[in-house]
Design a protein around this nucleic acid. Structure first.
Length: 570
DNA sequence: GCCGTTTTCGGCCCGACTGTTTTCAGTCG
């Protein structure tokens, strides 16, 4: 039984208790437990099998411990089945509609028998909802809009898309009159792989035109709200952007608050309460007196903490680590000395080896590895043994011509369905860097895919496992693979796992990368660039590495060339 | 339901906004 499945069961329990109007703190306990289990890197089922004490995990007490054991041993939870018996299945789905919470779901169900989204839509269209207590025509309109958005299923955007817009809007707003500061916040600032909307905070002097200026931004499709302190607009791409104007005295507290995550903020406010303080978006208060708020650093300091990097603010142990002075020194762009996966005109890349090498040198790199596809990747005109050998001579010529950068001879060899590799050992022996990846036959059962990958990296010529789950952000689910088993194998074999920096891949994701790091596996952050310009996508991979708590030491392409090469030989 | 440097009971994060009201419940982040 997967952690995800156990977490989903507790989420459903919480949803039903919510609709039933149960004690909100009891409900929160179930939601906390769901999140804790969903985030855990190792399988709860396995831990129980190994005799570990689940009840020791914070947020899991006697009752939930017993329920987890029941789920793991029987695959079911009687408590949930009893709860379900009391109400129609569609009711919990109604909670997913924006603006609809447990109270209204219950009201609609009790008064009008609404238990599906279709019935809700009909009732709203027929104007029957406005008959109910505290409901009106406006509420019906809003619900119809929310239903439409829910059905469209949109709402999240890739970080790269949102970041491009956010950076452009921030630059644009900073040029306005009377604008003192503009900073993006939200999940964007935490560098989550997808974001739902963009939050921008500003400090303005008197007579500032910032809100009018924002409304005139050329990608704005519709202004949804236009006030003195908060404006909201939808861009033509569908992204919603909120701009808030704040007082300088509370800017740090607001930046902290709007950066989140919600879970991090709740934990932080609890810490404030423990210290007889109150934390809100306006500052840290002792009674009525503000003791911090101007900068984020002050806010954290007033709670006895160093500044916690935004990427870590997920309430996944960062507050405890900060309190104990063991926050990681996160890897950053300045640490990167090279890039270990890229493609050129020899296969499906747009630029030559020499162009790529010169562009990498411009970025200040000491080395790159050129890693063409192998022959199994037909669409990319992948190389066979003979063409790869000829390609190595081109690499040598390019290295001489580029001057001052080492071009490692590499390949991205396919891991075939049976776990064999797509090229002879003899040619792989001649490579400085062998990346092994899966590119087709994704729909295997988990056990088979896990065996395939572990056998693939078991070939001692392989140095790096490329994009280890094959997912494409918001487009293609990862293939089914037991990542904990792959991490154990990589640790035993000394194989490096890749964080593919391409913003469409970001694979490994943050949770898996952290699992790898904690399992003693080293990582490589590679762009998989197919053009010179794409070499600059490195930052997205670094965002993932940072969210995974990685330091420079965890990432092999921060090493000087000699250390890198010494570490690659197996 | 969980938790404990106010420790086995009595707490549990905070404030704004919306739409409906004439004083506020529900929802959101």
């Amino acid at each position: 039984m997967e952690n995800r499945a156990i977490a989903d069961i507790f989420e459903e329990v919480a949803d039903i208790l919510d609709i039933k109007g149960e004690n909100p703190f009891r409900i929160r306990s179930y939601r906390n437990a769901a999140r804790t289990i969903g985030d855990m890197p190792s399988g709860v089922a396995g831990m129980i099998g190994a005799g570990e004490d689940i009840e020791k995990i914070p947020g899991i007490g006697k009752s939930i411990d017993e329920k987890i054991r029941e789920i793991v041993s029987t695959g079911r939870l009687r408590f949930l089945e009893e709860l379900r018996a009391g109400l129609p299945r569609g009711l919990t789905e109604l909670l997913r509609i924006e603006g609809l919470g447990p109270k209204k779901v219950k009201l609609f169900h009790d008064e009008l028998g609404i238990d599906t989204i279709d019935k809700l839509e009909t009732a709203a269209r027929e104007g029957r909802l406005r008959e109910l207590f505290r409901m009106g025509g406006r509420s019906e309109e809003n619900l119809l809009g929310a239903i439409a958005r829910y059905r469209e299923g949109r709402g999240r955007f890739k970080l790269s898309v949102a970041l491009d817009y956010a950076e452009s809007i921030v630059r644009y707003l900073r040029e306005g009159t009377g604008v003192r500061a503009v900073e993006p916040a939200g999940s964007l600032r935490r560098r989550r792989e997808t974001v739902g909307d963009i939050d921008i905070l500003a400090i303005c002097g008197p007579g500032s035109d910032i809100m009018d200026r924002f409304a005139r931004y050329d990608a704005v499709e519709a202004v949804l709200a236009h006030g003195k302190t908060r404006s909201s607009a939808r861009l033509t791409c569908g992204l919603q952007v909120d701009v808030r104007v704040l007082e300088r005295e509370s800017f740090g507290a607001a930046l902290q608050y709007f950066t989140g995550s919600k879970e991090h903020n709740i934990a932080l406010r609890t810490r404030a309460v423990d210290r007889k303080l109150k934390l809100s978006e306006y500052g840290v208060f002792k009674g009525a007196r503000r003791v911090a708020g101007r900068s984020e650093k002050d806010v954290y300091a007033s709670l006895g903490l160093p500044l916690i990097p935004p990427e870590l603010r997920e309430n996944r142990g960062e507050i405890e680590a900060a309190a104990e002075g063991r926050l990681p020194k996160l890897v950053g762009p300045g640490d990167i000395r090279g890039d270990l996966q890229m493609h050129t005109t020899a296969t499906d890349g747009k630029d030559t080896v020499l162009d790529m090498a010169r562009a990498a040198r411009e970025l200040g790199y000491e080395y790159i590895a050129v890693t063409e596809h192998s022959k199994a990747v037909r669409v990319a005109r992948g190389l066979d043994e003979e063409r790869l050998a000829r390609h190595f001579r081109e690499i040598e010529r390019a290295e001489a011509a580029a001057g001052g950068i080492r071009i490692l001879k590499g390949v991205e060899v396919d891991i075939l369905p049976d776990g064999g590799l797509d090229l002879d050992d003899a040619i792989l022996e001649r490579c400085d860097v062998v990346v092994a990846s899966v590119h087709y036959r994704f729909n295997m059962p988990e056990a088979e895919m896990t065996r395939r990958i572990i056998r693939g990296i078991g070939n001692p010529r392989v140095h790096i496992l490329g994009h280890p789950t094959g997912r494409l952000v918001l487009e293609r689910a990862p293939y089914e693979v037991d990542m904990a088993a792959v991490v154990r194998a990589a640790a035993d074999l000394g194989v490096i796992l890749e964080i593919n920096a391409h913003p469409d891949r970001l694979d490994l994701n943050d949770a898996h990368a952290r699992l790898a790091r904690e399992g003693g596996v080293r990582l490589a952050v590679n762009t998989d660039a197919h053009s010179r310009a794409q070499l600059e996508l490195m930052r997205y991979g670094l965002f993932v590495a940072r969210r995974a708590w990685c330091e420079a030491e965890d990432v092999v392409n921060t090493y000087p060339l000699s250390r890198l090469l010494a570490g690659l030989r197996r």
